Simulated scan of single mutants.
Amino acid sequence: MSKLVYSFGAGLADGDATMKNLLGGKGANLAEMNKIGLPVPPGFTITTEVCTAFYALGQKYPDALADEVKAAMTTVETTVGKGFGDAGNPLLVSVRSGARASMPGMMDTVLNLGLNDETVEGLAAQSGNRRFAFDSYRRFIQMYSNVVL
């Protein structure tokens, strides 16, 4: 299996709009928007091939996936100057599903992944708005509960 994770951000992207079968509609379009200079926050897309491989491997992820995701996350952290799980300077991410063909209602977005009992305090300190931080945490818990659980 080839590359499993495609990064985008800071005007650079591993993919483009022609790669919808591999990156899904959202992933391909985010890569393309980045390439044409639109201000897209950095991130990464896990390929549609991972889903196929997951079932082919007996509901196990390909061995290379964890390392590729860690490398992509490190790139995002470096680009924005924040750390995922860093209590003093937390990086919050959103998780969106995407498929080769649009499937409305299949999975909602999960926002604010990275908030927990420690990082919410860092967000409150950085924003100067404790209510905002805890409301963000509440929304994360609700979204995660609804979408994931």
Score class of each variant (00 low, 15 high):
residue 1 M to H: 09
residue 2 S to P: 14
residue 3 K to D: 13
residue 3 K to V: 10
residue 4 L to Q: 02
residue 5 V to K: 00
residue 7 S to G: 04
residue 10 A to W: 03
residue 14 D to W: 00
residue 15 G to I: 01
residue 16 D to F: 06
residue 17 A to F: 07
residue 17 A to D: 05
residue 19 M to R: 04
residue 21 N to L: 12
residue 21 N to E: 14
residue 25 G to M: 00
residue 25 G to Y: 02
residue 27 G to C: 03
residue 28 A to M: 04
residue 30 L to S: 00
residue 31 A to F: 03
residue 31 A to Q: 03
residue 33 M to C: 11
residue 34 N to E: 11
residue 36 I to N: 04
residue 37 G to C: 08
residue 41 P to R: 09
residue 42 P to I: 00
residue 42 P to C: 05
residue 43 G to T: 06
residue 43 G to L: 01
residue 44 F to G: 02
residue 46 I to C: 01
residue 48 T to M: 01
residue 49 E to K: 08
residue 51 C to A: 14
residue 51 C to Q: 05
residue 52 T to S: 10
residue 52 T to H: 08
residue 53 A to T: 11
residue 54 F to H: 05
residue 55 Y to R: 13
residue 55 Y to I: 06
residue 57 L to W: 12
residue 59 Q to P: 01
residue 59 Q to C: 09
residue 60 K to T: 06
residue 62 P to Q: 01
residue 66 A to N: 11
residue 70 K to H: 13
residue 70 K to T: 11
residue 72 A to H: 04
residue 72 A to R: 00
residue 73 M to Q: 10
residue 74 T to S: 15
residue 78 T to A: 15
residue 79 T to H: 09
residue 79 T to R: 09
residue 79 T to A: 14
residue 80 V to L: 12
residue 80 V to W: 04
residue 87 A to V: 14
residue 90 P to M: 12
residue 91 L to Q: 09
residue 93 V to L: 13
residue 96 R to H: 06
residue 96 R to I: 05
residue 96 R to W: 09
residue 98 G to T: 15
residue 98 G to A: 13
residue 100 R to K: 13
residue 101 A to K: 12
residue 103 M to F: 13
residue 104 P to V: 01
residue 105 G to W: 10
residue 106 M to T: 04
residue 108 D to C: 07
residue 108 D to I: 03
residue 110 V to M: 10
residue 111 L to W: 08
residue 111 L to D: 05
residue 111 L to M: 13
residue 113 L to T: 10
residue 122 G to H: 06
residue 122 G to Y: 10
residue 124 A to P: 14
residue 126 Q to G: 06
residue 130 R to A: 02
residue 130 R to Q: 05
residue 131 R to M: 10
residue 131 R to N: 08
residue 132 F to E: 13
residue 132 F to L: 14
residue 134 F to Q: 01
residue 135 D to N: 11
residue 136 S to P: 06
residue 139 R to A: 04
residue 139 R to V: 07
residue 140 F to N: 01
residue 140 F to D: 00
residue 143 M to N: 09
residue 145 S to I: 07
residue 148 V to S: 06
residue 149 L to H: 12
